[in-house]
């Protein structure tokens, strides 16, 4: 049964790799809003994120994403156009400008090329549009990655440890942007403390299982206005 209030519903979802459980069969719901997933960096966390983003098949269990049963091909196909994913240390093309990188993503996201400038504007990249991706500072490169992953204005966005290595001041600017990316945002971090304060629901990976974890909402006053 589809739970309308949840962006993701996993029932007995398990992922195995080389005869070892990466994620033991787990039942969990992820609500709309910002879901923080605390887990150590590594292939296990990436595999969980890829599975939730339909890029990888679950070994066992059922998975509903945005109301679609993604264990079936039709459901996967239908929901992929509504999902965005930005891996940790995401790949880009060396020597490519920010605009070309976003335009490249836009083609696959079926977004018209004329919308690229608006996307760059939305993510504060207008001034950096002509700069090569390699030349961008880390926070701008992250913005470019998010712009590419969210060029199609997805309903659900997965961000794998987006704030790792980002300075405090840039982090303060980015958090509101991340919160506003989509109705549902799943964001990971190695340290649960990095997530507390700005996520609406907290999850942790404990001994190969996803379990609910307390997540203290961030006070509104600390969010810079107008960002």
């Amino acid at each position: 049964m589809i739970v309308n209030s949840s962006a993701i519903v996993a029932r007995g979802l398990g992922i195995r790799r080389r005869r070892r459980w990466i994620l033991r069969p787990t039942t969990v719901e992820m609500a709309y809003g910002v879901v923080g997933l605390a887990a150590p960096a590594g292939p296990a966390r990436s595999a969980v994120l890829q599975t939730l983003a339909t890029l990888r098949h679950a070994s066992v269990g059922e998975l509903e994403v945005l109301g679609q049963d993604v264990t079936r091909r039709a459901g996967r196909r239908a929901v992929r156009a509504r999902i965005g994913l930005l891996p940790a240390r995401f790949a880009w093309t060396s020597g490519l400008s920010t605009r070309d990188f976003v335009a490249y993503a836009s083609y696959y996201k079926c977004t018209p090329r004329r919308a690229v400038d608006a996307i760059l504007e939305r993510f504060g990249l207008s001034d950096a549009a002509a700069l090569e991706m390699d030349m961008l500072p880390q926070d701008l490169r992250l913005r470019a990655g998010i712009a590419a992953a969210c060029a199609h204005e997805p309903e659900l966005v997965f961000l794998d440890e987006p704030l790792a290595g980002i300075g405090d001041s840039e982090r303060e600017e980015l958090i509101p942007l991340l919160r506003a990316l989509a109705p549902a945002v799943v964001v990971t971090a190695a340290d649960p403390a990095e997530l507390s304060g700005w996520c609406d629901q907290g999850l942790s990976m404990v001994r190969g299982r996803l379990v609910e974890a307390p997540c203290v909402p961030r006070p509104r006053a600390r969010v810079p206005a107008g960002v």
Binding site: L55, A81, L86, A148
Partner: peptide, 14 residues
């Protein structure tokens, strides 16, 4: 393969 996060999650044909 490293660009699957852009090319795989698409409304176009996989």
């Amino acid at each position: 393969h490293r660009l699957d996060y852009l090319r795989g999650l698409t409304a176009r044909s996989p």
